[in-house]
Structures are given as structure tokens and as C-alpha cells.
Nucleic acid binder design. Structure first.
Length: 272
DNA sequence: AAAGCACCCTGTACGC
DNA sequence: TGCGTACAGGGTGCTT
């Protein structure tokens, strides 16, 4: 599932291939993919705009245009590809943007949950999002203060994009394992040392996953913008390993449901 | 503030 | 073999 590292990877892949190109037209096969504005407005307004930069905010690919922004949220199954003209259509192709060099930007999305926004101001979409965990101005002091003010469970809090932007189910579980913290611990119950451990763990896990170009699970959901798998699935310690031996202590990994999300942890390494 | 739930969707994995 | 059903996932919106 695309989380921060996967979106970062896709954004980087697209950067070299899209920078400076103009959009010549758009086809929308699934109307609900276009979140904002209406499909007809989107098709009209996007034409002629040029790609100025490509970055990531939370789990959004941010395509800065010479006027406004194109934001893409891949959700669970969205994929972005740049393909040459004449490429035969694939299944689940929801949106095509035609580029002025003849190539096409494809948005493929099996489950139809992904969304594309065309907005004048980035904040129309990103205003409510929490801090970027890998940003330089995201300090351990800020994080500790925020943690101490929350009574919720760690797992739910890490998935809350208003609290912290970019973590999803995989990296939340991996970060909690790396910090040796139980997913059901109340955020305000952490000692200073535990707070700092969680801060370090989140950043270390995310950096490592970015470096590994993300996680491609056996269901094949995520690939980069070239259709290639990531490598971090080989480094997962707990996610998807329910019933298997902990790689650190050999205790059986537990799988529970927290806030409706499957949650994996080692009951020995991450004692309550 | 936090937790629980339904909803959005489809492919996959299961039981019969 | 083929059908039906449960389930996974992130985010939003609603209720408690």
C-alpha cells in the first residue's frame, strides 16, 4: 500500500520524466477519481498547463503546474506511469493525461479509491495534515509534546494523518516494533526515553524504506512509476508476519485489530 | 478527544 | 466447477 516511502519513490521517478512538459488533454474513464473540480472543469482547466516541479506531501504526489497544483492520492491500488504514445490500454486505467511530447501519464487504480485534485492552492487539500516526519523542522521536542497531549493508542495515533503525515499500516507497525512499544499503549503514558525511541524509530524506518524504494507485498499492489517492485518487503519485522517467529526473539508475532486495522507486534519485544 | 462503524471498491481466498 | 461470502486496505463522515 502506498505510504510515505512509496509515494516518495513514485514522485522521484516522475520528476525526471515530466518536468517541463505541458498537458495537452485528458481522458477520464472513472469520474469519481477526479475529486476536484468537476470532471468537465478538470478536463478544460488542465489543458495547456506545464509541469514545474514534482514533490510529495504526506501520501500525495504533488505536481506543481505553472498555475495551480495537481495532487494525486494513490490510496491502496493507485499507480502512476509515464508511457509512450500508442501503448495498448491496460485494465483499470482511470485517467490519462496527454503530454506535449507524445507520451501519456496514466493513473491506473484497480480499487477506484485513488483521487486526483486540481487546485489553485495546495492548502485546499493539505491544510489539515500533520507534520512531515522526515522534515528537518520536525523536532523530537515537538513530537514528544504532541504525544504527551494525546490519550489515544499509539497505533491509531500513528495512522492519524492530522497527527503525523505519511505513515500507513505497514510502517506504523514497523516503527512500533523498532521502538519496542506495544501498539495499544496510550500515547500520554510514554516516558521521555520511550518518546524519543519512537521518534527515532519512525524516522529510521521511513528513511530505510525510502532507500529501499518502498514495500511491494505479495499481492503486488504497489510498484514504482516504472512498474518495478520495491525491496523493503524483505526487511519487514512484523507486518504480515502474524503467527511467525519474531526475527529478534523467536516469540510468535501476534495479529490483532486496532481501530479496524490489522496490527502486528511481538508480545515479548513490545510488552504492554 | 477518542473510538466505533459504515462506506467507498475489487481481487483474492475461502467454504460448500 | 462455480457460486456466494468475508476480507483487506486509507480516508472520510457520522455517531456515541
Amino acid at each position: 500500500m502506498p505510504e510515505l516511502p512509496e509515494v516518495e519513490t513514485v514522485a522521484g521517478d516522475l520528476r525526471d520524466r515530466l518536468l517541463g512538459l505541458a498537458i495537452a488533454g485528458a481522458t477520464v474513464n472513472w469520474h469519481r477519481t477526479i475529486a476536484q473540480p468537476s470532471v468537465s472543469e478538470f478536463k478544460r482547466l488542465v489543458v495547456g498547463r506545464r509541469v514545474c516541479s514534482i514533490s510529495r506531501r504526506a501520501k500525495y504526489v504533488v505536481i506543481e503546474l505553472d498555475r495551480g497544483y495537481l495532487l494525486v492520492h494513490l490510496m491502496m491500488s493507485g499507480r502512476l506511469y509515464v508511457v509512450p504514445a500508442g501503448e495498448p490500454q491496460h485494465d483499470h486505467l482511470r485517467v490519462v493525461l496527454y503530454l506535449d511530447n507524445g507520451q501519456q501519464l496514466w493513473f491506473q487504480d484497480t480499487r477506484k479509491f485513488g483521487r486526483i485534485y486540481l487546485v489553485d492552492d495546495l492548502l485546499e487539500v493539505t491544510a489539515g495534515l500533520g507534520p512531515e516526519p522526515l522534515a528537518e523542522d520536525f523536532t523530537v521536542d515537538d513530537f514528544c509534546r504532541q504525544l504527551a497531549s494525546r490519550k489515544g493508542r499509539l497505533k491509531s495515533l500513528l495512522l492519524n494523518q492530522q497527527f503525523l503525515a505519511g505513515l500507513g499500516n505497514i510502517y506504523a507497525d514497523e516503527a512500533l516494533f523498532a521502538a519496542q512499544l506495544h501498539p495499544l499503549r496510550r500515547a500520554d503514558s510514554l516516558t521521555q526515553a520511550e518518546q524519543a525511541r519512537l521518534y527515532d524509530a519512525i524516522r529510521a524506518v521511513l528513511r530505510s524504506a525510502v532507500q529501499g524504494r518502498g514495500t511491494t507485498l505479495s499481492d503486488g499492489g504497489y510498484t514504482d512509476a516504472f512498474g518495478r517492485a520495491g525491496t523493503y518487503q524483505g526487511r519487514l519485522m512484523v507486518y504480515g508476519r502474524g503467527g511467525e517467529a519474531c526475527l529478534r526473539c523467536h516469540t510468535a508475532i501476534e495479529r490483532i485489530v486496532v481501530g479496524g486495522r490489522s496490527t502486528h507486534y511481538c508480545p515479548n519485544c513490545q510488552a504492554a
